[in-house]
Nucleic acid binder design. Structure first.
Lengths: 194, 194
DNA sequence: GAAAACATGTAAAGAGTTACATGATTTC
DNA sequence: GAAATCATGTAACTCTTTACATGTTTTC
């Protein structure tokens, strides 16, 4: 499954512009399928070329035309086929965890900064992105959430808060242990320098 | 950060062959940074060419030569620089959550199968991969775990079991709700067919 | 007799990220 | 005066995935 299929799925809810789709990816999608303009606009162009969506240009003054995309019948059929054929995978790629894994190679202050930065990020995701997604009428939200959407949203919240709690709780112990194992080395270095 | 840096970091523990590195990626790394032969072998070749590791060929009969990789002094410096400069990110890409998000477009049996497949997968990760990683002396495990490694491992366990628990707990409700919202449609269709 | 473990790689295709390119309006 | 919102896109780069290619030994 790629960004193209996700766009098609979002458009099945209601017609949208690329810009609106981007907003949907940010709120409530970011935590399980990140995508930016650089992948969304080309995806929409391909969908249009394949006849899976139609594009209607809406003029605006002092702005580029809005391009409203609508799923065609073929598009809907292709979407369902694609979804049925997709294997459920779940991949994590975390520079954060990798950095912690190699924490023994880093200065403890840097490790502390890494943990803090990640916690800040997750807090923002919880408060800004995921909190918005179920307010009907909120910007970038879906008018009415299906059971699957609620499941996905709640899954995201659960995972992000679990991650946040884990880091918050383990941080003091990690830093203590790192300093304990680096202090003897510092002592050795000091002796060697004499 | 890419597979190259991760390989360099693993080699900083002790010299290894590509095959051994692959095993390390499978046990205890898979949950936060997946990589296969297709990315590991080219990464090792690049590290060697850049002088960050040396390669020693060890003859074996009836098998291709083992190639043992060792980090050079330059390699170690480059590794630390790279780690210090890396921003902590944490990305999830989940076809699984996407499928659930679009569950209303799928037959409920398919949704049930998707949930079951994912739970099976996560159970295997917990029992096969993550369970091995801290047994010192176990195959593909690190001789002695640093505080950071323990943190990363426990983080993985926490996240995977949280995901598993969430799906296990929410599955009945999701399926019930999906069938409730599809049954009216079936009724409509039946009426329309008369 | 089949499957898994051991052991290395290449090549092409597919996908996503980042930076570039433009520009008015509104809000802080 | 700066930053965010609205609104579109392209192009180059980087990276990963998948399939190909080969072959023995050990375990079930």
């Amino acid at each position: 499954m790629d960004v193209k299929t996700l766009c098609l799925g979002l458009l099945a809810e209601r017609p949208m512009t690329g810009y609106e789709i981007k907003k949907r990816f940010e709120t409530g999608f970011r935590h399980f399928f990140p995508a930016g303009f650089g992948s969304i606009y080309p995806a929409l162009a391909e969908l249009a070329q394949a006849g899976l969506v139609t594009v209607e240009s809406v003029e605006q003054d002092k702005r580029p035309d809005k391009k409203v995309h609508r799923v065609t019948e073929t598009g809907h059929r292709v979407l369902v086929d694609e979804l049925v054929a997709t294997d459920p995978r779940h991949k994590v790629r975390s520079e954060f965890v990798a950095l912690v894994y190699f924490a023994h190679l880093l200065p403890p202050e840097r490790v502390a900064a890494v943990l803090d930065a990640m916690m800040r990020d997750w807090k923002r995701v919880l408060l800004d992105d995921l909190a918005q997604a179920d307010r009907p009428g909120a910007d970038g939200a879906c008018p009415e959430l299906t059971p699957g959407m609620r499941f996905a949203l709640e899954f995201g919240r659960t995972m992000v808060s679990t991650a946040l709690d884990y880091v918050k709780q383990q941080k003091p112990q990690l830093l203590r242990e790192l300093e304990e194992s680096s202090r003897p080395a510092a002592a050795r270095n000091a002796r060697a320098a004499e």
